[in-house]
């Protein structure tokens, strides 16, 4: 069985004011087919965790490990991580001028599979995935994310998830900025991917709303660069009612005591 295992992960970034530690020992294990929700206050380091798993060059790993089926992910380049089966749906997908969606996806698929997809089935597949996410087929000829609305960008991310078929997906606030219909469409896409390939999911979110559509097996509370508590789906409801106060105070007290 496939496993993504994060152990004592410590990450910092270099800022103008010097080095700033952000992740302070993250422990998290995701097995194939499991859905994990991560919730936590703004600035607690959730996106940092997501980007570090994907290998963004901006983040400096100071310690710990990320093992995918026993192989160290931290030693891999960004594209190697994708080839190993990791996928990040980004909080803010970037626009890439002059590169069409169709060209981009075909290049990515070719890179991942090691061979170009057969033209006929490819065009059909692409159309199918686009229509599943209620994206007009004209998007294929538009430049990647250029001029897409916030919601369209998120749909495009999930379309890639379905098309590229990773083992593990990290969804960084994929639900933010979606209207009620889009939230449903995107959630269905995630659930399809989950069912089709027994995908393991790490879902970063601020709202319990999406958890009505995508049922987590585990919920983690992320505060001050580490996992402060974990539990089942009921933990999400508790957070919705009580907020993060309790954990933030505890983290501050621990920091003061240290």
């Amino acid at each position: 069985m496939s496993t993504l295992e994060i152990r004592d992960l410590q990450v910092s970034i270099d800022t103008e004011q010097g080095n700033k530690p952000i992740l302070k020992g993250v422990d998290l294990t995701i097995n194939k087919g499991e859905i994990h929700a991560v919730m936590g206050p703004n600035g607690s380091g959730k996106s940092t965790l997501a980007y570090t798993i994907a290998g963004h060059p901006r983040y400096k790993v100071d310690g710990g490990s990320i093992m995918l089926d026993g192989v160290e992910v931290l030693d891999m380049t960004v594209d190697e991580r994708a080839k190993a089966g990791l996928f990040l749906a980004m909080q803010y997908p970037v626009e890439i001028p002059g590169v069409t969606v169709a060209n981009f996806l075909r290049t990515a698929k070719t890179a991942l599979d090691g061979e170009a997809p057969a033209l006929r089935t490819w065009v059909k597949d692409l159309r199918q995935h686009m229509s599943d996410l209620k994206m007009d087929s004209s998007f294929a000829e538009r430049n990647v994310n250029e001029g897409f609305s916030g919601g369209e960008k998120k749909r495009h991310e999930i379309m890639q998830l379905e098309l590229l078929k990773p083992k593990f997906a990290i969804l960084d606030e994929t639900d933010s900025g979606l209207d009620v219909d889009a939230l449903k469409i995107v959630s269905e896409g995630v659930n399809r991917a989950h069912a089709a390939t027994d995908l393991g999911i790490l879902m970063i979110t601020h709202y319990t709303r999406i958890l009505r559509y995508i049922k987590p097996d585990f919920v983690h509370v992320f505060v001050d660069g580490h996992v402060a508590e974990q539990g089942g789906p009921e933990l999400a409801d508790q957070l919705e009612n009580e907020g993060y106060d309790r954990y933030v105070t505890a983290a501050a007290a621990a920091a003061a005591g240290a």
Binding site: A82, I96, F104, A111
Partner: peptide, 28 residues
């Protein structure tokens, strides 16, 4: 960096990602 990272995170090797970004930029 963000353009390259986005492409690389989808499995596209760095050299090819660079090629795609520059070509996209100029081909307009």
């Amino acid at each position: 960096d963000e353009h390259l990272f986005y492409l690389e995170s989808r499995g596209i090797p760095e050299e090819e990602a660079r090629r795609i970004v520059v070509l996209g930029f100029l081909s307009e």
